[in-house]
Structure formats: structure tokens, C-alpha cells
Design a binder for these strands. Structure first.
Length: 388
RNA sequence: GUGGCCAUAGUUUAAUGGUAAAACUUCGGGUUGUGGUUCCGACAUUACGGGUUCAAUUCCCGUUGGCCACC
């Protein structure tokens, strides 16, 4: 299911067999919350983007259109015409981010739909059932994700609840595989999620409880939910090396390009983040620093290896940030990123895209989303090509 | 020509005898398992001149400009 082919320091290169795709690690998953990456069609992702997996969200798909419909229409892959792998998030993060409208109990999370106000119970079993019948390739357990500033006591209690939910999640998946095997007889992977906030010992505790249950992969959850930048780096530094060597390691929800590079250098294999697409919609663009993109990324990884014992990021980055609404681009006839190589990347000037952005033309957001996503995926290629 | 109304941020509008509020625009920043165009911040000598008052954007007079009605 997961083979490590090579490694370079703590950085690992492997192949993850995720039912619909064999995935080269480390990889980044674009976020297609409700079945589509905002502004980009799945066929375009398939044809023009270097990714064999995307992430979709159980919470949203549960509310609309519901797993019964998707199941009836042949599952997510057929329904969305995305033939490669899909990882579904469990809804655990929404429990945290929508906490104003929900209540957490032993049984699960009671919440009100943000769409029509109706009340629902999302239990571990219901989450797994939904993901199973949606046809997900990688299923995440339902977890509780306490906010950054939570008290240690609360985090401890929460982590133990997450463990109990994880056991119930695994039981439910095994039950479903028995009573109602998928038509093609495929078996999705199931990942556990390590919690424990900013406390090293609680992270260890969480992981050991999850390992006792046993999962196909392990995720680091509850990161960048309000902690300081340095705490985020420390949690990754402590937790990543603890995760079992022979299983894929997934850092949930992160991050900025430099954070992803940092985490790969500590042995993390999988990432997802809304940053490239959300920031694009808000005018923030990641661009390469020079034409030597691959060398620049490799140099950054070397710098990371040098400073490995410290939880900090090297100063020389391999990219710049461009804010398209800034006045300096008003008359700028250069393309958004002269060093980008994706199809269409050199077609329009900064001045033109800035104009479209300022008058709120949808195309500006779509174009910048394409760019940022291409940037992220290209960065992952260069991380995978690094050998010291 | 006579009478009336009006003048506050780039724009459209608030408010008050105690030195001005909002939306949009403009400018800058944020965004980390996405509640689909978002969140935060910045930007005004209240048309001009004079008067009353401890204090005027507010009350009074005049000037200029605009709108309406009548002749």
C-alpha cells in the first residue's frame, strides 16, 4: 500500500497506492470542497495539472447533495468525472471552524446546517458511512480539533474523545466492507488523526492510542488553528518523526510554500491547503524568484537540512509574493510570473489581470487560482526531485 | 427679475452648538483539514468671506455655484 523508494535525510520518496491512483510522495492535494476546485473544472485538472489526487469535504457533500444521490449516480469519481484518487475530509475541521452552530457530545457533533438551519448529528459512524458511499479512496476519521489557545486539560480530554471516535470509525468501516462491499470490491484507506495541540507529550499520547487501533496512515491535525508561527513549526518538528516510518504521514490543512518544504524535510508525505486557491481569489500570487526554479527549491531544502535541529525557516526563499491589486502593477506589461511554464501562463499582462481583478471579473480569480495551484504542484515536483 | 431649497471624503448620503458617521471608490495588509467576490486598517482644515458664542460643520449676514417654481 505504501512503499518508500528512497530518502534524503528525513525527506522520503515513496509510492502510495490509493485505489484510483498510485501517488508519488510527497504530494499536495488541491481542495475541491464541494466537488470542484473553485473556478477550474475537474477535466482541466486532469489534463493540465500535475496531480493524481484531490480533496473533497464530507461535511459539505453530506449536506448537499448527500451521499445517497452520489452513490446512486455511481460514486464521486463518476459523478464529478474525476477518475483519479480522492481523499475526503471527515468534517472534523468544520466541527471546529463552525463551532458557533454546533455541540460536541460523546455520540458525535450536533450541528445546524449553514444552508437551511436544519439540525443534524455527525457521528463517527455517519462520517465514515458518508465517505464510504461517496466512494472516497482515502477516508479520514472524524476528530475534534480544538482551537489554538485551548487549555491543556481540554486538549487532553478532546484527544481521548478523538481516539474513541477513531476506534468507532475503524469498526464502522470494517462493518461496511463486510455487509456492503463496494461494487468493484475496492477497499479505501483509513487515516487516523493525531491531536494534542502544542504539547509534545499529548501528541505522543494521541499517536500511541491511535497506533494501538492501527491505521493505513497517520495525519497531524489541529495545526495552524490559532497558534503562533513558531509553535506551528515546533509541533511539526516534534510530531512528524514520531509517526510510523512505514505509513504515509499527512499534515492536514497546511500550508504556505515554505511550510510545506519544511514539513517534507521532516518526513511528511501528504499536504492539502486552501491557501493557493483562496489567496488567489483575494489577489495574492506566488511567483518564482528566478528561472532556476528547481535549483532554488533544492537550495532551500539544503538550507532546511542545515538548520534542522531548530524549528525555523531559512531566510532565502525560492519565491516572491505578488499582490495583484497593488498600484505598482497598474502599467506592468509583464506576465504574472515570467518563469511560470504552465499553458496560458504568459498570455496576459499583470496590468490586464489587475484590471480584471479590480472590476471583479470572475476570470481574474480563476486565472490566479490556476497560477497558484500550478506553482504549488510544480514546487512539489522539485521537492520530489531533490536528492541532496 | 422675484421667491424657495441646497452646498459635508473621489462619489452618494448621515449627524450634531462641544472640531464629523456610513456605503461605494482609492491605497495598504490579512487569509493555513474553504460557510464561493472575504476580513482588517488608512484617507475630510464640513464651498468661500464675515458675524454671534467659551465653543460654529450646525445659528445669522454676505459671496459664489447648483436646483425648483413663478414673472
Amino acid at each position: 500500500m505504501f512503499d518508500i523508494k528512497e530518502s534524503c535525510g528525513s525527506l522520503r520518496y515513496g509510492i502510495l497506492d490509493a485505489v484510483h491512483s498510485k501517488l508519488e510522495t510527497p504530494f499536495f492535494m488541491p481542495v475541491a470542497t464541494k466537488g470542484s476546485i473553485r473556478g477550474i473544472g475537474n477535466q482541466e485538472i486532469y489534463n493540465q495539472f500535475d496531480t493524481d489526487i484531490i480533496l473533497m469535504n464530507t461535511y459539505h457533500l453530506y449536506l448537499k447533495p448527500g451521499y445517497e444521490l452520489v452513490h446512486k449516480l455511481g460514486g464521486l469519481h463518476k459523478f464529478t468525472n474525476w477518475p483519479k484518487a480522492i481523499l475526503t475530509d471527515s468534517g472534523g475541521f468544520q466541527v471546529f471552524s463552525l463551532s458557533k452552530i454546533n455541540k460536541i457530545t460523546e455520540e458525535g457533533v450536533y450541528f445546524r446546517s449553514h444552508i437551511d438551519g436544519s439540525e443534524h448529528l455527525l457521528s463517527p459512524e455517519e462520517s465514515i458511512r458518508t465517505q464510504y458511499y461517496l466512494g472516497s479512496d482515502i477516508i479520514m476519521v472524524l476528530d475534534e480539533c480544538p482551537p489554538g489557545g485551548s487549555a491543556r486539560d481540554y486538549i487532553l480530554k478532546s484527544l481521548e474523545l478523538t481516539t474513541r471516535w477513531a476506534q468507532r470509525s475503524k469498526d464502522e468501516l470494517e462493518r461496511l466492507l463486510q455487509v456492503d462491499p463496494r461494487p468493484d470490491n475496492t477497499k479505501p484507506l483509513l487515516f487516523g488523526i493525531v491531536q494534542g495541540g502544542i504539547y509534545e507529550d499529548l501528541r505522543k499520547l494521541s499517536l500511541s492510542q491511535l497506533q494501538e487501533i492501527g491505521f493505513d496512515g497517520y495525519a497531524i491535525g489541529g495545526v495552524s488553528v490559532g497558534e503562533s508561527r513558531i509553535e506551528v513549526l515546533k509541533v511539526i518538528q516534534w510530531t512528524a518523526p514520531l509517526l510510523p516510518d512505514d505509513k504515509p504521514r499527512y499534515l492536514m490543512g497546511l500550508g504556505k510554500p515554505e511550510e510545506i518544504a519544511y514539513a517534507t524535510s521532516l518526513g511528511v508525505d501528504m499536504f492539502d491547503c486552501v491557501i493557493p486557491t483562496r489567496e488567489a481569489r483575494h489577489g495574492t500570487v506566488y511567483i518564482w524568484k528566478s528561472d532556476n526554479k528547481e535549483q532554488d527549491v533544492h537550495q532551500y531544502l539544503r538550507d532546511l537540512q542545515q538548520s534542522k535541529t531548530e524549528a525555523k525557516l531559512p531566510e532565502n526563499k525560492f519565491f516572491d509574493i505578488l499582490k495583484i491589486q497593488n498600484l505598482i502593477y497598474r502599467e506592468d506589461t509583464n506576465p504574472i510570473d515570467p518563469y511560470a511554464k504552465w499553458q496560458g501562463s504568459q498570455d496576459y499582462s499583470r496590468a490586464y489581470i489587475r484590471h480584471l481583478y479590480n472590476v471583479k471579473e470572475q476570470y481574474a480569480m480563476e486565472y490566479l487560482s490556476r497560477h497558484n495551484l500550478q506553482f504549488y504542484l510544480e514546487m512539489m515536483q522539485y521537492i520530489r526531485s531533490f536528492r541532496g
